[in-house]
Design a binder for these strands. Structure first.
Length: 271
DNA sequence: CCCGATTCCTGTAGGC
DNA sequence: TGCCTACAGGAATCGG
């Protein structure tokens, strides 16, 4: 489950293999992702080299001389650097083949990911230009959240998960951040005090940075019954713990649906 | 403008 | 054992 920390880990993993490398070929096996992969890439990318690999929110950006490739992993996407002759597996939808015999291979069973092309500054792209600040940006602070939330009637959980407010806070991080901040997820965003937004801002920064430090271990993996709980799952206080005891006060963790998403909270610790 | 609902998709898990 | 259904989720877009 690629949350922001997994995307950043992916970026760090692939960047050294891509930087300054020249593209020799583009293979689209299934272009039906969130949006169609532009078939024009097949002709336009070969011959270009990758100047840099950056990230904005959950979008990876491969900067090239004539534009930028913008990639999103959706909820089941992953990327690997492989030898170009490595046999393809099911759901290997896209290859960026390099001059040196390696390739970047995009794998995405649920096809919620996307691969787009931007002729100009990718940060000005329609999908990126309105994104909120990164969690580690000083722009994200209690005052900012308080200002943005005035007169909003949406729940605080929906508000903090809105990528136009702040990027990278998925369903799991939202529940965990609200627990750390002691805020009930059902409260109206517009009625929360500035002091409490300071706590929430701090909580978001802590949760996301801790996950990045741990190599972006998937928070989602912990629900898998493969005996390999995610590293970060050890630190989950409420997510997925319906009817279990709160680790802080012993009360029973509650479950509810907010914005069509499973939500978990401690009724005693979160008011 | 605001906000809740819908939509895309497939692997996994639970019920019978 | 196997079929069927529910569910999970990022985020744009639709609809009231």
């Amino acid at each position: 489950m690629p949350e922001l920390p997994e995307v950043e880990t992916t970026r760090r993993g692939i960047a050294p293999h891509l930087k300054n490398q020249c593209i020799s070929k583009v293979i689209i096996r299934n272009g039906k992702l969130r949006w169609p992969i532009p078939t024009s890439l097949i002709r336009s990318l070969p011959g270009q080299h990758i100047i840099d690999v950056t990230r904005r929110g959950k979008y990876l950006i491969l900067q090239m001389p004539k534009g930028a490739l913008i990639m999103h992993l959706g909820m089941s996407g992953s990327m690997r650097i492989l030898s170009a002759d490595e046999p393809v597996r099911k759901h290997d939808h896209f290859d960026l083949v390099l001059d040196n015999g390696k390739c970047l291979r995009f794998h995405d069973p649920r096809r919620f990911g996307s691969i787009l092309w931007s002729k100009t500054d990718p940060l000005q792209h329609k999908l990126l230009i309105k994104l909120g600040p990164e969690p580690d940006d000083d722009l994200l602070c209690g005052d900012y959240l308080w200002q943005r939330s005035r007169h909003k009637r949406v729940t605080i959980k929906s508000f903090i998960m809105d990528s136009h407010v702040v990027v990278g806070v998925g369903n799991i991080y939202a529940s965990e951040s609200l627990f750390r901040a002691g805020i009930n997820p059902k409260r109206a965003a517009g009625k929360i005090s500035k002091v409490r937004y300071e706590r929430l801002s701090d909580a978001v920064k802590e949760v996301i940075s801790a996950a990045i430090r741990q190599g972006g271990t998937s928070l989602k993996d912990f629900t898998n019954a493969d005996g390999k709980p995610g590293y970060f799952s050890q630190q989950l206080n409420v997510y997925g713990r319906r009817d279990e005891d709160c680790l802080q006060c012993g009360a029973t963790i509650k479950h509810c649906t907010i914005g069509q998403r499973a939500s978990y909270y401690c009724p005693k610790c979160q008011k």
